[in-house]
Lab assay of single mutants.
Amino acid sequence: IRCIGVSNRDFVEGMSGGTWVDVVLEHGGCVTVMAQDKPTVDIELVTTTVSNMAEVRSYCYEASISDMASDSRCPTQGEAYLDKQSDTQYVCKRTLVDRGWGNGCGLFGKGSLVTCAKFTCSKKMTGKSIQPENLEYRIMLSVHGSQHSGMIVNDTGYETDENRAKVEVTPNSPRAEATLGGFGSLGLDCEPRTGLDFSDLYYLTMNNKHWLVHKEWFHDIPLPWHAGADTGTPHWNNKEALVEFKDAHAKRQTVVVLGSQEGAVHTALAGALEAEMDGAKGKLFSGHLKCRLKMDKLRLKGVSYSLCTAAFTFTKVPAETLHGTVTVEVQYAGTDGPCKIPVQMAVDMQTLTPVGRLITANPVITESTENSKMMLELDPPFGDSYIVIGVGDKKITHHWHRSGSTIGKAFEATVRGAKRMAVLGDTAWDFGSVGGVFNSLGKGIHQIFGAAFKSLFGGMSWFSQILIGTLLVWLGLNTKNGSISLTCLALGGVMIFLSTAVSA
C-alpha cells in the first residue's frame, strides 16, 4: 500500500470489461488503480535517471590570480610587451599612462603600459546536455494484498515479495511487465516523455548541487567559461569578468580578483528545477510519464477462499488518510488461513446495510499462523458509518465519521480527471477507425466523469442509474429551450454510458 502517505494521489477506475487503462505517473504523486474483478494496485514513479550526459560548457565562479607582471614604455618608444601576453592562462590589459620627467621619461606624453596576471579557477559549475534516449524511469508497484503497516513504502525485498514489484522503462524499451506472483502480471506500455523539453534544458552542477536550467539563461551567464570537458589546462574565455584592473600608474597597475560568485548564482537559480546525482547518473524529480496498463493477466487472489471465522482485533486505531479513506490494521487469532476477511461498512448496526467501498479488493489472510496481521483500506461514505470486521458474535466494529460532501468530492474528481486527460493529450485517442474513435470517446468520458459518477451514484443499482439517464434524455427531447435540451441530452447520455461502463 504505497499511496496512503502521498498527498498527491489519483484514483483511476477501469471500465467494466476493459483490459487496459491509461494513467499519468508523476514525481511526488501516486496512482491507485481499481477495476472490477482485479486486485487494487498502487503505482508510483520513484526516480527518473539520466546517463551519458555530455559537458557543454563550464563557468568559473571563484578564481585566484598570481605571478603579476607589468612592462611600460616612454612616449615614442613603441608598445610595451610581455611574453605572458601569448599565454592563455594569463589575463592581460594594455593601456596608456601619462609619462614625463617625473617618472623617468625625457618627453612628456602618453606611454604604453601592459599588465598580466595568471588566472586560476578555484571553483566552477558545469552544464551538461541531456539526450531523451538516455532517460530511465523506475516504477514501483504494490498490490493491496496481505501486507501490514511495516511494509508500507518499503522498497527492500521486492524481489521475493509477490505484493510488490519494480520495473524500469526507457525510450528504447518502453514496454515492461511486472510479475506479482499469485496476482498474475501487469503489463506497462509507457510513452517516455517527461513533459520537459530537454532540447531547451541543461543539467547544471555547482558545488555538489544540481538544477535543470534553460539553455539561453545558461549561455548568457557573465562569467569566465570554457567549452567542452575539462582537459586539465582549460582555456578560459572572458577571464576579465572576475578580474579587475585598478587605476594605472606610470610603471605598474594593481590587479585584484573578485570574490566568489556562488551567492549571486544561487539567487539567479531561484525557482529552477532541482535535481540530484546518483553516482555518474543524474536524478530528476520533475515531469511525468504516461503509461497504458494492460490488466488482462491480472487476477484476484483468494476468490475461492472461505470466510475467516475466528476473532479479529484492531492492532491500531483506524486512521484517516490524506485522501479521506480509512486504513485499518487487524490481527487474526485463527489458524484456518488462508481465508477471506469479512469486512464491510454499514450505516447502522441493526440492518448492516453496506455503504462505501473497499479500496483493498478481496482482502485475505494468507498465513495459517496465529496472530497474522493484515492492513486494508476503505472508502467510507460522508457522515457517520460503522466499520464491521468478522462474522457472528466475534465481529468487531468501529464508529467512523467522514466530513465533507459527495458533491465536493465529485467536483474534485472531475477536475482531476480533466487534468489527466489534458496530460494524456492525443495519445488517449485513436482515429484509425470508426470503432477506435468511439472507443476513445468512451475512454475520455470515463477518465473525466467516472470518479464523479461513482461518488454521486455508486450506491444505486445499474438499472436505477439507466432509468435516471433515460429520464434526462426524455426531458431533453421534450424541452423547447435549446440549451436546457442539449444539457439534459448530454447528461442523460453520459449517465447511461457510465452506468453500463463503470464497474460497481
Rank of each mutant, 00 (worst) to 15 (best):
D161N: 14
M349S: 14
R292M: 03
S7D: 06
A69D: 00
S464Y: 10
K239E: 12
G287D: 08
T179Q: 06
D67F: 05
I407G: 02
L45V: 08
I496F: 15
N52C: 05
N237Y: 14
G182R: 05
M295R: 04
M68N: 00
E26H: 03
T179G: 01
L258C: 10
W462F: 13
V502I: 11
I387P: 00
A413P: 00
T335H: 12
V12H: 05
K246R: 14
T76V: 06
P39Y: 09
K301M: 15
L212S: 12
F183V: 13
T500I: 07
M375N: 02
P380D: 09
G111P: 01
F411S: 09
K166A: 15
Q344W: 03
L201V: 15
S185M: 05
I1W: 08
T233F: 06
H398R: 13
V330T: 05
A54K: 07
L378I: 15
L180S: 14
P174H: 07
D71M: 12
G104I: 04
V6C: 04
N238W: 07
S455T: 14
T366G: 00
T500P: 05
K93S: 03
T19C: 06
H399G: 14
L300M: 10
V330Y: 09
R416D: 04
H266L: 14
F108C: 11
G5F: 05
L289P: 02
E329N: 10
K454Q: 04
K84G: 13
I130T: 08
A311N: 02
I130P: 12
Y386T: 14
V46Q: 05
R57H: 04
F449G: 10
H214L: 06
L96G: 03
V434L: 14
P318N: 08
A418G: 02
E276W: 10
I448H: 10
K110L: 01
S405L: 01
V31L: 09
W20G: 05
D336W: 13
P342H: 07
L467K: 04
G492F: 02
Q36S: 10
V347F: 11
Q447M: 15
C3S: 07
S286E: 15
S146V: 00
L273Q: 13
N238F: 07
T309V: 13
A227L: 07
L475F: 15
V364K: 00
D22M: 10
P222N: 10
T95M: 11
H226L: 06
G18W: 00
Q89F: 07
L471G: 14
G324R: 10
M15P: 00
V415H: 10
V6A: 10
I448T: 07
Q89K: 05
W429E: 05
I341Y: 06
Y202S: 01
Q447E: 04
K246D: 08
G356Y: 06
H226Y: 10
R94T: 11
D37S: 11
D296M: 10
K297D: 04
G228E: 13
L45Q: 07
L269G: 05
R57V: 03
L477T: 13
T406H: 05
F438I: 15
T315M: 15
I445S: 08
A241S: 14
K246M: 09
V364Y: 13
R175M: 12
A310K: 13
G104N: 05
V265S: 10
V343H: 02
E244N: 14
G181F: 02
L489H: 09
Q89A: 15
C339F: 07
L284C: 13
D161V: 03
D42L: 02
G106K: 00
I407R: 01
G184D: 06
S485C: 15
I152C: 03
N172I: 06
K110V: 04
R57Q: 05
K283I: 01
G184R: 11
S499P: 03
L284F: 15
G287W: 02
F497Q: 12
C291G: 01
A178S: 11
K38F: 08
W20N: 06
T470E: 00
E168K: 05
M277G: 07
D426Y: 01
S304M: 13
G106V: 14
L456A: 03
D384L: 07
W225R: 06
G111H: 04
L96P: 02
K84H: 14
D393Q: 01
Y305C: 11
T95I: 09
M277Y: 04
G104E: 05
A501D: 00
S199Q: 09
M495T: 14
A346P: 00
R299E: 04
G78C: 07
Q85N: 10
V423C: 03
T76D: 09
S304A: 07
A280Y: 14
N237V: 00
C3T: 02
D37K: 06
K297W: 02
E44F: 06
S199W: 02
E159A: 13
I468F: 08
P380L: 10
K395G: 00
A270K: 13
G476Y: 07
L186S: 11
F314A: 00
G432L: 00
E320G: 07
L186H: 04
L477Y: 02
K128L: 15
W400H: 12
G232A: 11
K409H: 14
Y305S: 01
T397K: 02
G28M: 05
V317P: 15
L107D: 05
E177N: 08
R99C: 09
V255L: 14
P338R: 00
E216Q: 08
F198Y: 09
T327Y: 03
Y137V: 05
G259L: 03
V364L: 06
F457M: 13
L358P: 12
I468Q: 04
E370F: 06
S7E: 11
E276H: 09
D200N: 15
T414M: 08
A490W: 13
S173Q: 05
Q465T: 09
D230F: 14
A165D: 10
G482H: 11
S58W: 03
K110G: 04
D37W: 04
V415W: 13
N163D: 15
T366R: 06
V437L: 15
G195A: 15
A319G: 01
N478G: 14
H214F: 09
A227D: 07
P222F: 10
F198A: 02
I448A: 10
S185P: 00
M125K: 09
G334L: 01
E329L: 02
S66D: 04
E274L: 03
K239Q: 13
L307D: 00
D87S: 15
M375E: 15
M53H: 03
P171A: 03
A178C: 06
K281D: 15
K124Y: 01
A272I: 08
S7G: 12
P234N: 09
W20D: 05
F449P: 04
K443L: 13
T406V: 14
G469K: 07
R416T: 08
D189I: 04
K297A: 14
V494I: 13
R402S: 01
Y59V: 04
Y332D: 10
I152V: 06
G444H: 11
R94G: 12
G324T: 08
Q261G: 08
M460N: 08
T397L: 14
R175F: 09
A504S: 13
G14H: 05
A165K: 12
G29C: 15
T479C: 05
F245R: 02
T160C: 09
G127E: 11
K166D: 12
H401A: 09
A280G: 13
K246A: 01
G187M: 14
E412T: 08
V255A: 05
V473T: 07
K283D: 01
Y81H: 15
N208Q: 14
K239R: 15
T170A: 13
G324M: 13
M421C: 06
V494H: 11
F431E: 09
F463C: 12
S16L: 08
